[in-house]
Design a protein around this nucleic acid. Structure first.
Length: 278
DNA sequence: TAATGCACCTGTGGGC
DNA sequence: TGCCCACAGGTGCATT
């Protein structure tokens, strides 16, 4: 499940592999992936003949600068990019292929078909609703404890787990890393976000930056199907303290990790290290 | 206005 | 062995 570290790892891989390559042709075998423009033929025509100039990231979105256009790609649950040569067999669940003029190909695979691609004019990414409302980048210098305290206090209510999953509060966190940062900061997932103390929010801020930084350095977590542009797994899954560790001892105190459902999401925490009330 | 529930999807694993 | 069902979860939309 690609979250910020996984998308950043994909971005770095793609930047090294496809920048400067010219798109000769695009094959779309699952039109549902293409959201805008409506017409898949138009999508292809808008990008064919142009080179990929840059690969950037905002939250969990990949932003590819292609001529006058910005291709916005969201991997959702299991989307992945792979770099191939023309003669390589096309694997199952490959939905979009960017054929380059040098015989190489960038292929988009997505078993669950949840991923999306949108084309926007360069510099007008605010026209895509999900992108326009993103909160601050957690690994940017501008994301300070003070900024985070203000943003959290501005919410009138809400459990902290749900708030951290809200991309307009802070961009890039998903279910796995939310569970991890709450564990690291000793906060119960059902605690009220706006009612956290300054000390708790500062601890949470520190945990968000630390966990995401470590995960980016390790190439993300391969909890299910995630691999980077080279087909390699990340290393962060070996560092997870609570996610996927139901009924296993907490690394801090030995209490068994509990799994519940919160807001429809599997939620893992240590009931001793993360008490609901101090 | 905010919280909640559901749909979108397919592979996997457990139970029978 | 095969079938059925629950589950996994990011996002957008509908409902409460």
């Amino acid at each position: 499940m690609p979250e910020l570290p996984e998308v950043e790892t994909v971005r770095r891989g793609l930047a090294a592999l496809v920048i400067g390559k010219t798109i000769e042709k695009i094959t779309v075998s699952l039109p549902r992936i293409i959201r805008t423009p409506d017409d898949v033929r138009q999508f292809c025509m808008m990008l064919e003949g142009y080179a990929i100039d840059a690969v950037e990231r905002r939250g969990k979105y990949l932003l590819l600068s292609i001529g006058p256009h910005l291709l916005v790609s969201h991997l959702r649950m299991e989307g992945r990019y792979g770099f191939y040569h023309r003669e390589d067999p096309v694997e199952k669940h490959t939905h979009v292929i960017f054929h380059f003029t040098d015989g190489t190909e960038l292929r988009y695979k997505d078993v669950r078909q949840f991923g999306t691609m949108d084309i926007l004019p360069q510099g007008r990414h605010q026209e895509l609703p999900g992108l326009a409302t993103l909160g601050p980048e957690p690994l940017d210098r501008s994301f300070t404890p003070e900024v985070f305290i203000r943003a959290l206090r501005a919410r009138r209510s809400g459990k902290i787990k749900a708030l951290l999953l809200d991309q307009s509060l802070v961009a890039g966190l998903g279910n796995i890393y939310v569970d991890e940062v709450l564990f690291q900061s000793g906060i119960h997932p059902e605690a009220s976000g706006p009612e956290l103390s300054d000390r708790q929010i500062v601890a949470l801020h520190r945990a968000i930056v630390a966990v995401l930084t470590q995960s980016v350095e390790l190439g993300g977590s391969s909890v299910k199907s995630y691999v980077n542009g080279y087909g390699q797994e990340g290393g962060m899954q070996h560092q997870l303290n609570v996610y996927g560790r139901e009924d296993q001892p907490c690394p801090n105190c030995g209490t068994l990790i509990v799994k519940t459902r919160l807001g429809g999401r599997g939620t893992h925490f240590c009931p001793t290290c993360q008490p609901l009330h101090d």
